[in-house]
Amino acid sequence: NEEPLPEGWEIRYTREGVRYFVDHNTRTTTFKDPRNGKS
């Protein structure tokens, strides 16, 4: 039961299956979860 991502964020996966987060607001990507700060 995960809380929803902030507005404008999306979860994607690399070809290796590593989860990362896309911030469409700033057009950046990060491996850090914007909901809780954990990677």
Score class of each variant (00 low, 15 high):
residue 17 G to M: 06
residue 20 Y to R: 01
residue 28 T to D: 05
residue 18 V to S: 07
residue 23 D to G: 01
residue 25 N to F: 08
residue 3 E to T: 11
residue 39 S to G: 15
residue 11 I to M: 14
residue 13 Y to F: 10
residue 11 I to Y: 05
residue 25 N to P: 03
residue 38 K to T: 15
residue 16 E to H: 14
residue 20 Y to N: 01
residue 28 T to A: 06
residue 37 G to I: 10
residue 19 R to G: 05
residue 32 K to M: 07
residue 14 T to E: 02
residue 27 R to A: 14
residue 27 R to V: 07
residue 21 F to D: 00
residue 39 S to H: 15
residue 28 T to F: 08
residue 23 D to Q: 05
residue 8 G to E: 03
residue 20 Y to D: 00
residue 33 D to F: 02
residue 33 D to H: 03
residue 21 F to M: 00
residue 5 L to M: 11
residue 10 E to Y: 06
residue 7 E to A: 14
residue 12 R to C: 12
residue 14 T to P: 01
residue 11 I to G: 03
residue 9 W to G: 00
residue 19 R to N: 04
residue 34 P to F: 01
residue 10 E to F: 06
residue 22 V to P: 00
residue 1 N to F: 13
residue 15 R to H: 13
residue 5 L to K: 01
residue 28 T to M: 08
residue 38 K to Y: 15
residue 20 Y to K: 01
residue 9 W to M: 02
residue 1 N to E: 14
residue 35 R to C: 03
residue 36 N to Q: 11
residue 7 E to T: 12
residue 34 P to L: 01
residue 3 E to A: 11
residue 24 H to N: 12
residue 13 Y to Q: 06
residue 32 K to S: 10
residue 3 E to R: 09
residue 33 D to L: 01
residue 11 I to F: 06
residue 21 F to Y: 09
residue 14 T to Q: 02
residue 4 P to L: 09
residue 29 T to E: 12
residue 14 T to Y: 02
residue 16 E to A: 14
residue 5 L to D: 02
residue 38 K to Q: 15
residue 2 E to A: 11
residue 24 H to A: 07
residue 6 P to D: 04
residue 21 F to W: 06
residue 13 Y to H: 09
residue 2 E to F: 11
residue 31 F to K: 07
residue 19 R to L: 11
residue 36 N to H: 11
residue 26 T to I: 02
residue 28 T to L: 09
residue 20 Y to P: 00
residue 33 D to Y: 02
residue 31 F to T: 10
residue 2 E to M: 11
residue 21 F to Q: 00
residue 38 K to W: 14
residue 2 E to R: 10
residue 14 T to H: 02
residue 13 Y to T: 07
residue 27 R to Q: 15
residue 2 E to Y: 12
residue 7 E to H: 13
residue 23 D to T: 01
residue 7 E to F: 12
residue 8 G to C: 07
residue 14 T to G: 05
residue 16 E to F: 13
residue 3 E to G: 13
residue 37 G to R: 06
residue 37 G to A: 08
residue 12 R to W: 07
residue 5 L to I: 06
residue 14 T to L: 04
residue 5 L to Q: 02
residue 29 T to L: 13
residue 14 T to K: 02
residue 3 E to Y: 08
residue 35 R to W: 05
residue 27 R to L: 11
residue 38 K to P: 15
residue 18 V to E: 09
residue 24 H to R: 08
residue 36 N to W: 11
residue 4 P to T: 09
residue 16 E to D: 13
residue 28 T to P: 00
residue 29 T to W: 15
residue 27 R to K: 15
residue 4 P to W: 07
residue 16 E to G: 14
residue 16 E to L: 12
residue 18 V to D: 07
residue 3 E to W: 09
residue 20 Y to V: 07
residue 3 E to F: 10
residue 15 R to Q: 13
residue 21 F to G: 00
residue 19 R to V: 12
residue 22 V to L: 10
residue 25 N to W: 07
residue 5 L to E: 02
residue 10 E to P: 00
residue 9 W to H: 01
residue 39 S to T: 14
residue 39 S to N: 14
residue 6 P to R: 06
residue 31 F to S: 08
residue 8 G to S: 04
residue 7 E to Y: 12
residue 24 H to L: 10
residue 23 D to L: 03
residue 36 N to Y: 12
residue 38 K to L: 15
residue 5 L to C: 00
residue 5 L to Y: 04
